[in-house]
Simulated scan of single mutants.
Amino acid sequence: MTTVATGHPASAATSDGKRVGPLLRAWRERRRVSQLELALRADSSARHISFIETGRSRPSEEMVLRLAEHLDVPVRERNSLLLAAGYAPHYPETPLDSPTLDALRQGMERLIQGYEPYPALVVDAVYNVVAANRGIMMLLEGVPESLLEPPLNAMRLTLHPEGLAPRIRNLREWRGHLLAQMERQIALHRSEPLRALYEEVAAYPVREAEHEHEPADPVPHFALPMQVEHEGRTLSFISSISTFNTPMDVTVAELAIETFLPADPATVKYLQSLLP
Rank of each mutant, 00 (worst) to 15 (best):
P119F: 05
R207Q: 13
L261T: 11
P89K: 12
R233H: 03
A202I: 04
K18T: 12
T259Q: 15
K269I: 09
V252P: 10
T3D: 14
L271P: 11
H70V: 03
A131K: 02
R169D: 00
L197F: 03
A42H: 13
P99H: 01
T3P: 11
V252H: 08
I112Q: 03
A10I: 01
L104I: 05
P161W: 01
P74F: 11
L188G: 04
P92K: 01
R195F: 02
S191N: 02
H48W: 09
N153R: 04
T246D: 15
S191K: 01
H8N: 09
L82K: 05
P193T: 01
R31T: 07
P99A: 08
L24Y: 07
L36E: 14
G163P: 00
R134W: 13
Y198E: 04
G21S: 13
L235Q: 00
P215K: 10
K269C: 14
P9H: 07
H230K: 14
H211G: 01
V75D: 08
E62P: 02
A10G: 11
V250D: 14
A5T: 15
H221I: 12
E149C: 12
A165R: 00
T3G: 06
M226H: 02
D217G: 07
A266W: 08
Y127D: 13
R105W: 10
E254P: 09
E149A: 05
T259D: 07
A263Y: 08
F260M: 03
T54D: 10
R156A: 05
R172D: 11
L139E: 05
A68C: 07
L194N: 07
L82W: 05
P247D: 11
V4G: 03
Q185G: 08
G86E: 05
T259I: 11
P59H: 02
P99W: 08
V122D: 03
L83C: 11
A84R: 00
R56M: 00
F244S: 05
G21R: 06
T3A: 15
E61H: 15
A88P: 08
K18M: 15
V143G: 07
P59F: 07
P99M: 05
M248R: 11
E199P: 00
S34Y: 00
A223K: 09
A263G: 13
D217S: 07
K18G: 11
L140K: 14
V75F: 00
A266D: 14
D217H: 07
S239P: 00
A165I: 06
A196V: 13
A120C: 10
H8A: 08
S191C: 05
L159G: 01
T6N: 05
Y87H: 06
N133L: 02
E192C: 10
R233S: 06
P205K: 14
S44L: 10
F260I: 02
L148H: 09
T100L: 05
L96I: 14
R78P: 08
L274Y: 15
A42Y: 00
S11V: 01
D102R: 14
M155W: 07
Y115I: 08
S240C: 15
V219F: 04
